[in-house]
Write a protein that binds this DNA or RNA. Structure first.
Lengths: 154, 154
DNA sequence: TGCAATGGTAAACCAGCTTTACTAATTTGT
DNA sequence: ACAAATTAGTAAAGCTGGTTTACCATTGCA
């Protein structure tokens, strides 16, 4: 069916076939995420993933409000709420009611959570080391800089 | 609670706070995806997104087997099956049984599907033009090259 | 005192897949 | 020639990492 109708356009297909940049971004994220999860599992952190490490990295030592965490992580408070729930189940954080505002929840580290944060940080460094081995120090930095520039221009 | 226990470690937090590369990839993909969906909607293609464009770009003019599409798109045949279903509902593709192998399905363009493919291609070019405006021609190419190198090294 | 703003929760959905488990048709090995 | 393995595809659930819509409880301000 398509043959006769579209044969004039066949030369366009070469252009269509080129992998678009969005697809490269998707695969890159998944690559990083998969590497991270494997490493976290090996360090004994099951059931948690990259998203949780991001939350913990935004937690102050003396505890942080959920809404503040949401702003810092650049996601909705509902999303943070879900991550907090999972981290709480894993025993990595605790919640207390803010005495100065009883609507608010203060999220704090536990000892296990502090260990998770350090392990997550190590994982991050390991993966970036792997990337450095592929691209070299300068090009990894270039990649990060270009992505940052692209996202900040939005 | 955390205050006394972890105060020695406070200097480590600076390192923890650095946005990891995986997060940059995630946001970059979402940025591309959002731009694409907005543009596709404006061209009259509702209910379809980036993933569908990727499938269509791998369709031969005379039709292609579902399994072949999956290999070219680098996803599972289940994933392709889902996309095919949605494209079929939208009237962009048709399916026929392969007469030489009755297990197999041949996926072909419709006229509307061909139009969608051309529109999707235009959208891709528009977004990359927007990125070019931010990074410049050379740096956009560098970004693409670095991502490709990273993914091929896997 | 009343009502909007703020902190948080609940449930459904979106995007783009994968894993697990299966059926039907075809090919291979003996 | 016929059973076993392989291949094409479907079905349903789950995963990663969120968002939107709708809501309740508390607080702040006029």
């Amino acid at each position: 069916m398509a043959n006769e109708k579209f044969s004039d356009d066949i030369n366009q297909l070469d252009d269509f076939r080129q992998q678009h940049t969005g697809r490269l971004f998707l695969y890159a994220h998944r690559d990083f995420s998969e590497r991270a999860i494997v490493k976290l599992r090996r360090l004994g952190h099951s059931s948690l993933s990259l998203a949780h490490t991001n939350l913990l990295a935004n937690l102050d030592l003396d505890g942080t409000r959920l809404t503040t965490l949401a702003e810092r992580s650049r996601v909705t408070k509902q999303a943070i709420g879900q991550l907090v729930l999972e981290l709480e189940k894993a025993g990595y954080i605790g919640r207390t009611i803010d005495p100065t505002d009883r609507r608010a929840t203060i999220v704090t580290f536990t000892v296990a959570g502090w260990q998770f944060l350090q392990d997550a940080n190590q994982v991050k460094h390991e993966i970036e080391e792997e990337y450095r081995a592929i691209l070299g120090e300068a090009d990894l930095q270039t990649l990060r800089d270009l992505l940052t520039k692209l996202l900040e221009a939005k």
